[in-house]
Amino acid sequence: MAESIDPRQRPRFWLIHCGGWLGYGLVSALGALPYRNAFPVLMYFLGTTAMAFLASPIILAISYRLAVAKASWPRTFAVVIACAYPMGILCSTTGAALETVFGHPPAASSQWYSILFVGFANAFSPTLMLAAWAALYRGAWHWQEAQQRERQWLLAETLAREAELKALRYQITPHFLFNTLNGVSTLVGEGETTAARRMIALLADFLRSTLEPTRQGDVSMAKELTQVQQYIEIEQIRLGWRLAATVQCDADVLDTPVPHLLLQPLVENAIRHGIAPFVEGGSLSLAVTGAGDAVRIAIRNRAGGMPGKRLQGGGLGLANTRARLAARYGEDYRFAADVAEGGWDTVIDIPRHAAVSAQA
């Protein structure tokens, strides 16, 4: 991974690199202006800066190797200083040589001695600049490495959630399909061919919309309610007058993204466990309302003629719903399913604006 995140591979890095050294050279050149004979001093600063610029890729390569090796900061500091100081001497000596050439050189016997003396004496400034540049590079390397790790973690988390949502969705679809086919078989056996054909047509429409590709399993609330109403109509064909259902939704939340097939298993549980087993049938209400940045989904079923009975049920539908909400919203949701007298009360609170837009 280290090879792929080397900041030197980015063109923007070299623009900053060249711009930084150019700025350092200009500031150094301004330091020559107070001198009476400024030109030789100017050549000293320009020569030192030019040599430091040429030496900087070497110190960056050393810093890169230390970063790849995960060297500690004390070891990195020691190695960088040990390498930067000889380079600083070379840079300062180069500047002193240019100053001598363009200025007034001393006697021939002491010319090179003076140049070397100036090189050693003035090596601190270029050494400091090279070490500082190496430290900035190491910081950029660590920042870019952290960014890449965060992107990889987010990608892995997204893929894991997508896989979990798909697995849960593949559990729901066959569960509903088998129940509906059993209903069709019952109608055919009772001679209700018209109702059976209508149920088959509704089942085909439901499965067609179910198998449409969606982004991370999200659809709009409007589409989710359309599929729920298709399912309710299928059950009304099977149960007849024994099922009274109402579906209400605020207009301003119809475009809210929700996980695909989130509500169908809850409605299915409410009908199968809370209404179908009883001769008197019962009622089902589904209400979707918006309040601020949240959307509340309330599902309520009651068994007719048995107001005091506490019904049991839930199972796979509730477990899948809780798991899908956790996978999709993390901790930013509320799910409550409580047994009430004569039925169930299920409440879901989700954000109005989810991170992934729905496909209507």
Rank of each mutant, 00 (worst) to 15 (best):
P7Y: 06
I16L: 14
W21P: 08
A29R: 03
G31E: 06
A38F: 09
F53C: 11
P57I: 10
I59Q: 06
L60T: 09
A67F: 14
S72M: 01
S92Q: 00
S92P: 00
G95R: 03
A97Y: 11
G103Q: 10
V118Q: 09
V118I: 14
G119L: 02
P126F: 02
L130R: 09
L130D: 06
R138Y: 00
H142K: 08
R149V: 11
Q152S: 11
L159K: 15
A163V: 06
E164V: 14
Q171W: 02
F176S: 06
N182S: 13
V184Y: 01
E190C: 07
R197F: 09
L202N: 13
D205I: 01
R208E: 12
T210N: 11
Q216C: 05
V219T: 10
M221I: 07
T226N: 14
I232Y: 03
E235F: 04
E235A: 15
Q236H: 13
I237D: 07
A245E: 07
T246F: 08
V247R: 07
Q248T: 15
D252V: 09
P257A: 07
N269T: 11
A270P: 08
A270M: 11
H273D: 10
F278K: 01
V279W: 03
L284F: 15
A287W: 09
A287F: 06
A294Q: 15
V295E: 05
I299N: 02
R302E: 12
A303G: 09
G305M: 07
L311R: 11
N320Q: 04
R322S: 08
L325P: 01
Y329M: 08
Y329F: 14
E331V: 12
V339H: 14
P351W: 03
V356E: 06
